[in-house]
Design a protein around this nucleic acid. Structure first.
Lengths: 216, 216
DNA sequence: ACCTGAACACCGTTCAAGT
DNA sequence: ACCTGAACACCGTTCAAGT
């Protein structure tokens, strides 16, 4: 991989995202990153303080571009749904983003999400003192459930199998469990196959939005 | 740390939990673990296949003892609330458990939770084909939101400050953001201080339980 | 100002050799 | 059967030395 442009923070972040996407959080290494940038590992430290900051910066790049491409809906509720879906899909496409957001809960990527989501929740017309509780609940749900889904996606990727085959594997493993000792897991194994996490995620968002109504 | 009993899988897991509790996931090392067990790093591999299995086993120990101490309530809903609260508190007390559960979504600790929670959801009287969707939603919420809370707890621990002081820090940082560029975050900073995540978590559980009712 | 690359203090894991 | 500990192939990070 030859150097095309001179080294810069932005170029480092771009290549870091490539590396994270192709081989996960363990795939991002100062040595492989340096190799791809045709330089030594020490050079990166001139532009980025450490690995954790690099991860947060890479995460912020994804979050920024995700939020920018979320179109506003007709109502605040529609916009909230669109942002939630956009973040869910982005985290699924870049599974390392979920964990990265958890490690920097007050930094730039989170502030960016807050600025996008907050005013929409505000527009629903809640009492001012309930604002943080509701935005926090929404954020916890989106990022919490999104990250769990992403971890599953990541796991099937690491094992080198498609998502559907992975669910198949789980279903088979569970259906082989002792029926006396693990009756519920054994019985529910059938339903694991072909289940759509995204549909459930969005149903949960609707549930939360419906729950906000009575608080107005 | 002198050896008291002979080396065994259980003893290794006990010490691993101690290490994880006192210094997080990065604190668990085959070398420090071996030192605490008064042996060499290689000895551990006789009882445990690798680090990831060790982490899952440590996680399972916490989950098993947590579920065992959850008393059943008067109604299925009460029991679900108790289990949810128990898991939330356990994950907050052992922040590494959240991440560990995410890395082994079909293994023993998860099966254990399923066996505890599943029959209670079943007792709510839903149609059989909706069972996995509802249990999955509940599980995603509990573990997703619980893990996010735990990551925050872990972060304040890593920085060596109390949770309240950490929230103070976040509030101060946000209130210093540019008011033009980040109006929402700037404005909501006040509310961050003294916010109770646990109360919100339980309110979310109630919301989900209420959302199940119409599906019966 | 920015880059180089050797060096330091670590990792997880393996494996010949011991008991 | 179980344990030892050196060795292998890695890490993130630092820093003298170069340009």
């Amino acid at each position: 991989m030859a150097r095309k442009e001179s080294l810069s923070r932005d170029r480092i972040i771009d290549v870091a995202v490539e590396l994270l996407d192709s081989s996960g959080e363990t795939g991002l290494t100062f040595r492989t990153l340096a190799a791809k940038l045709a330089t030594g590992p020490g050079a990166i430290y001139w532009h980025v303080p450490n690995k954790s900051a690099l991860l947060t910066a890479a995460c912020d790049a994804i979050v920024a571009r995700t939020l920018a491409s979320c179109v506003s809906g007709a109502t605040p509720g529609d916009t909230i749904r669109a942002v939630a879906a956009g973040l869910f899909d982005a985290i699924a496409a870049h599974p390392w983003v979920g964990a990265a957001l958890g490690q920097a809960p007050a930094d730039m990527p989170m502030v960016r999400i807050l600025e996008k989501l907050g005013p929409q929740v505000q527009a629903l017309g809640l009492p001012e003192e309930r604002l943080w509780a509701v935005v926090g609940a929404l954020l916890n749900y989106i990022l919490g459930v999104g990250s769990r889904h992403a971890a599953n996606v990541q796991l099937s990727r690491t094992r080198g199998i498609a998502r559907a085959d992975f669910l198949d594997l789980v279903a088979t493993t569970w259906s082989r469990l002792d029926q006396q000792q693990y009756p519920f897991t054994h019985g529910v194994a059938r339903q694991v196959r072909g289940h759509d996490d995204r549909v459930d995620f969005l149903a949960g968002i609707d549930l939360i939005l419906a729950g906000i109504e009575p608080a107005r």
